[in-house]
Computed example of a mutant assay.
Amino acid sequence: MIRILIADDHAIFRQGLARLIGGTPGMGLVGEAANGHEVLDGVRALSPDVLLLDLSMPGPGGVDLIKRLRKEAPGVPVLVLTVHDETELARRTIRAGAAGYLTKDGEPEDMLDAVRAVARGGNYVAQQMAARLLYDQLRPDAGAPHRVLSNREYQVFTELARGVPIATIGERLHISPKTVSTHKVRILQKLGLSGDAELIRYALRHRLVE
Rank of each mutant, 00 (worst) to 15 (best):
M1A: 12
I2F: 06
R3G: 11
I4R: 06
I6P: 04
I6N: 06
A7Q: 10
A11M: 11
A11C: 07
F13K: 09
R14M: 12
L20M: 15
T24A: 13
P25S: 13
G26S: 09
M27P: 10
L29V: 15
A34H: 12
V39E: 04
D41I: 11
D49E: 09
V50K: 08
L53V: 03
L55V: 08
L55D: 06
S56N: 14
P58G: 10
G61Q: 15
I66W: 02
I66K: 04
R68G: 12
R68H: 10
K71W: 07
E72R: 12
V78F: 07
V80C: 08
L81W: 10
V83M: 15
E86Y: 08
E86H: 11
R91V: 04
R92L: 06
T93G: 03
T93I: 02
R95V: 11
R95E: 15
G97N: 04
G97E: 05
A98L: 03
A99Y: 01
A99H: 07
Y101W: 05
L102K: 05
T103K: 07
K104W: 06
D105T: 13
G106V: 12
G106F: 02
P108G: 05
M111Q: 10
M111W: 09
L112C: 07
A117L: 09
A117M: 11
G121L: 01
G121M: 02
Y124G: 11
A126V: 10
Q127G: 09
Q128F: 13
D136N: 14
D141L: 09
A144S: 11
P145D: 08
P145N: 06
H146F: 08
H146E: 09
L149H: 01
N151H: 11
R152Y: 00
Q155P: 00
E159T: 05
L160W: 02
R162Q: 15
V164L: 13
P165I: 01
P165W: 00
G170Y: 00
H174R: 14
I175C: 03
I175R: 02
S176L: 08
V180S: 00
V180L: 00
S181K: 01
S181M: 04
K184P: 01
K184L: 03
V185S: 11
L188Y: 00
Q189D: 15
K190V: 02
K190N: 00
L191Q: 05
A197P: 00
E198G: 08
E198P: 06
I200P: 04
I200V: 15
R201A: 15
A203D: 05
L204A: 12
L204M: 12
R205T: 14
R207E: 14
R207N: 11
R207I: 00
R207C: 02
